[in-house]
Design a protein around this nucleic acid. Structure first.
Lengths: 115, 115
DNA sequence: CCCATATTCAACCGTCTGGTTGACGATCCT
DNA sequence: AGGATCGTCAACCAGACGGTTGAATATGGG
């Protein structure tokens, strides 16, 4: 939950973890299924998922034997907002940027995986 | 510099480096001046600056004895764009997003935007 | 109950990271 | 020239990181 920028950015710094996030973009997945395309052990993937969860980038819910992993972009949003602070001195119009996001993303916070 | 997402995100993962970026937001600075507020050696700060430069987040220019450090948010933009990709499962139009960036950021953003 | 499946735990290993210190090459100033 | 200042380099250290393997803990299905 209370993920710091430290944990979020270091979670994103690993390509395996970024690929996992990309996969979860398409659908929620079980740990075993997340691990399948990778050339590394299940235990390694399990660790990566723990790191992603600690960073607030995914949530994990156990149903029966299976632990389902689901994208949770809140921490990503926090990091994104931090990063956008560095656009200030550039000729980008942040108000227009925000308006764009609002127009394109809509009420995103209420509408997670509507699938 | 062709900074990868790996190097950008891991550069951002350190709070000292993020603080350095925040300081450079206000003004360009010499290495010694960057180091001054931190409770660590000059050599450590010098290493941090090297990492930030390798990630494409700052540029360094030596004039006389003094090496000036300057913010260069191109790599930050690339990472930001990557992160925005996780709005995909929300009704965001990525083409429109790209068009927006091109319109707002101008030619300076052509270098590092795509992966 | 037995067995397969799903996932984590524990110990271990090599490498990367963030810090230190001291020596060093440049450069500026008298 | 001599000395102070700017910054990096090299060697070193402790700890974190990313991976492995094997054992352990649930849970589900015949």
């Amino acid at each position: 939950m209370a993920a710091s920028l430290d944990t979020v950015f270091s979670a994103l710094a690993d390509p395996t973890r970024r690929e996992i996030l990309r996969m979860l973009l398409e659908d929620d997945m079980a740990v075993t299924d997340v691990a399948e395309p990778f050339a590394m052990s299940l235990a390694a993937i399990s660790k990566h998922l723990t790191i992603l969860a600690a960073a607030g980038l995914i949530t994990q819910e156990k149903r029966g034997r299976v632990k389902w992993c689901k994208l949770d972009p809140d921490a990503l949003k926090a990091a994104s907002v931090w990063m956008q602070g560095f656009g200030q001195f550039e000729p980008v119009n942040l108000d227009a940027f925000e308006a764009f996001l609002e127009r394109e993303l809509g009420a995103s916070s209420d509408r997670n995986l509507a699938d």
